[in-house]
Nucleic acid binder design. Structure first.
Lengths: 214, 214
DNA sequence: TTCTTGACCTTATAAATTTCAGGTATATAA
DNA sequence: TTATATACCTGAAATTTATAAGGTCAAGAA
């Protein structure tokens, strides 16, 4: 027999620990003392004793009196340094609903604010809108979603933009062809809007991301 | 009362399923029928009946005659496919200040909620705490910062954890040595706390990130 | 109306599981 | 040598847990 070297596990203890670990990965729940005993061909009580030792040495945890509550603590070699990068959150105002007819920049429409990780949206001035309707469903933007818009008067071909047409806000994909400008819905049910020469057309900004609140 | 639509879950069944899901994420093992019953204020037998239905509908699996062997099959939470560019925000309640003596899970202490990108914190159950004091200053955690904690009863050596000692919440680095457990401050001004045999010591969760609001 | 189903309940029972008490044997340290 | 720790054992509690059997009530379908 080998004795334990300080805080090291003995051979037997390691065997029990390995058995538990294997069992959990295979079954998704921890074994009972009896089951461990059967695997190792020893008695429940021996296992029980080992469990106490493993618990004392902080290799496992258990709940007193509760079945199958062994949890494995020290994942043997995984020494991952706790690198906790800080999240930098940017306040983004939610200023309305994108199908609403009212001028959406009015303060009355302020729904609130959300905090978004800066790394997701970059730097700039942003606002958020709640999407109503299904016109962008093929782009993965569903009714009720929030979209974050970066304020900018220009956009490129293919960008999804928030725009004002006749004072109504809408979210569409921008299509710049030779000399025509279209707003394309992402849903066959709707038709492209030709905004080529419309004076009442104005780009509010470019969508940088959608937000789903779980 | 509502009837079930095909293989949809009824309200009750969904409630049971959610309870199981929550229990597992919090404890690391599945609940017994009795425990579910206590949470939902119904009887074991009712729960048992629901478990049979959930199993028949393929939302869970169980091992006949074995304790705590419920496994969740359908991940109920995620239903909508979200595009890669989408941000998934998780609501994280801010439930107090980490130096406060009061039991911090009390609703009275709710400061509000923040929304954090899921990709920054992963899956699980979280809460946030405002840090008071400078005991973790060497870990980059300053007075007034918010820290996000994942609820879990276990932690590994080196993790920064939120713990209760004598009903006081504290944020420290966990040190598991041979057979002693210490909470280490990250500031030379303060001394380690030996919690090896303290009954009033309980791990609330593991810090996953700090939050800075710009 | 009657029938079926879901969601409950009470009362039990049989197994499954943890946990205790008290031994034996062997290895290592003092 | 003697003490101590580990690894086993036998034999039982004492609890936890799953599961059975049978009944009530309400809602919706036939």
């Amino acid at each position: 027999m080998k004795t334990s070297n300080r805080n090291e596990l003995t051979e037997s203890q390691a065997k029990v620990l390995k058995t538990i670990n294997d069992f959990i990965t295979e079954n998704g729940y921890s074994p009972t003392a009896k089951e461990i005993a059967e695997i190792l061909h020893i008695t429940q009580t021996s296992v029980f004793e080992q469990l106490e030792r493993l618990e004392k040495k902080r290799y496992i945890t258990r709940q007193k009196g509760a079945a199958r509550t062994i949890g494995i603590l020290n994942t043997v070699v995984d020494e991952k340094p706790v690198k906790s990068e800080s999240v930098k959150l940017v306040k983004v105002p939610v200023i309305g609903t994108i199908a609403a007819g009212a001028p959406i920049f009015a303060d009355e429409n302020m729904e609130g604010e959300i905090l978004v990780d800066e790394s997701n949206i970059g730097k700039g001035r942003f606002f958020a809108l709640r999407v109503r309707g299904d016109s962008m469903i093929n782009a993965g933007i569903n009714n009720g979603d929030l979209v974050i818009i970066k304020r900018q008067p220009l956009a490129e071909n293919g960008d999804i933009i928030a725009a004002l047409i006749d004072n109504e806000a809408t979210l569409k994909r921008l299509s710049l062809t030779n000399d025509e400008v279209f707003l394309l819905p992402e849903n066959e049910k709707y038709s492209p809007i030709n905004v080529t020469c419309r004076e009442d057309f104005k780009i509010l900004g470019k969508m940088v991301t959608t937000v789903t609140v779980l």
